[in-house]
């Protein structure tokens, strides 16, 4: 049928095609046939660290800046820890988790939720370090100035969002989705109470744009990104304002795969903690992370994130 759509001329005959092409194509096909095996997983789970440390990060801000700065991080770690280090960019939060799960990324800068998701999918993975600011991270709710929503200080004030349109950032974001949704439910607002379906803008920056444009009345995002945008002067404060800053929670952290053994892990954590603001290169790294220093962390710090994740369905089971 499609044929008759695509071939206006009714005649169907022979076409001269070089044999080698056919041969190559068949070879390709046979090669591809090997893929359709759904065999039992092999019992052997132990994988060795292969000598090259591939680091990654969830794409939570300008990828160009991410790439440039993670090159610095990679160089720094290579020098301090004494292994080859390479940065591999990804486009989505989920992709970062999946790449970590399959072992394409060894050490990843995750958000609170993605870090938990990643650890749940890889036995023996560890949260190893975080920034000083990650102990008390916050999100902001922003709203168009024409919505008439006045800023407030109490979580209960979030009840004004009921009956409004709202967009989150990426659906796997801790500060752009998980925690805001959790605070909303603390204020008695469920997603059903919103006007229409909640939006997922895909990134913190896009959330600001969409609220500024008026497509959504309210948006929720990472307060660090908001502050940076305000400082840059790329937000029209006449059109959009902060209505609420949330209480603090644990967020971003480095998670390491089990192939990174205790010794290597210690060396990596030590290197991160030794980042020195008086060294210009190291200062750039700290500045990029928006932190004074890195500190040690552990899996237990993220137990409450895990609970919230299960509650709102971002963690399956």
């Amino acid at each position: 049928m499609i044929k008759s759509l695509l071939y206006p001329t009714p005649v169907l005959e022979k076409f001269s095609m070089p044999r080698p092409l056919l041969v190559i194509l068949f070879a390709l096909f046979i090669a591809a046939c090997g893929s359709s095996s759904d065999e039992e997983p092999s019992e052997d789970q132990t994988q060795e660290f292969d000598g090259e440390l591939v680091i990654g990060a969830i794409p939570d801000q300008d990828p160009e800046i991410l790439a440039r700065n993670y090159e610095l991080v990679a160089d720094y770690l290579a020098e301090e820890v004494g292994v080859d280090v390479r940065f591999e960019p990804v486009t989505e939060y989920d992709a970062a988790v999946t790449a970590f799960r399959v072992g394409d990324l060894d050490l990843v800068w995750f958000g609170g939720l993605t870090g938990v998701q990643a650890r749940l999918q890889v036995d023996g993975a560890n949260a190893i370090a975080q920034r000083d600011i990650d102990e008390e991270f916050t999100s902001v709710f922003i709203a168009g100035t024409d919505t008439g929503i006045e800023p407030f200080d109490d979580v209960a004030g979030l009840s004004v969002v009921a009956g409004r349109t709202l967009t989150f950032g990426s659906d796997s974001s801790t500060s752009g989705r998980l925690m805001p949704q959790s605070f909303l439910s603390e204020a008695g607002v469920t997603l059903e109470d919103l006007d229409g379906e909640s939006g997922f803008s895909g990134s913190h920056d896009a959330t600001i744009e969409l609220v500024e444009a008026g497509t959504f009345e309210v948006g929720a995002l990472n307060s660090q990104v908001w502050d940076a945008r305000v400082e840059e002067g790329t937000v029209d404060l006449d059109r959009v304002q902060v209505i609420f800053e949330t209480p603090t929670y644990f967020d971003y952290h480095w998670v390491a795969r089990p192939e990174i053994d205790a010794d290597l892990e210690t060396r990596i954590v030590a290197a991160l903690m030794a980042l020195d603001p008086s060294d210009p290169d190291e200062a750039t790294i700290l500045e990029f992370f928006g932190a004074e220093s890195f500190i040690e962390t552990s899996n237990e710090n993220y137990a409450s994130i895990e609970d919230v994740g299960r509650e709102i369905g971002s963690i399956d089971g």
Binding site: D94, D171, F200, L210, F216, G313, S314, D316
Partner: peptide, 23 residues
Amino acid sequence: GIVGTAGLGRRLDEQTSAFDYDG
């Protein structure tokens, strides 16, 4: 399925981000 659009696409987005493969 990205921005506030309903349907199976959005459902798929949410499920993949929650790694809910049976869903």
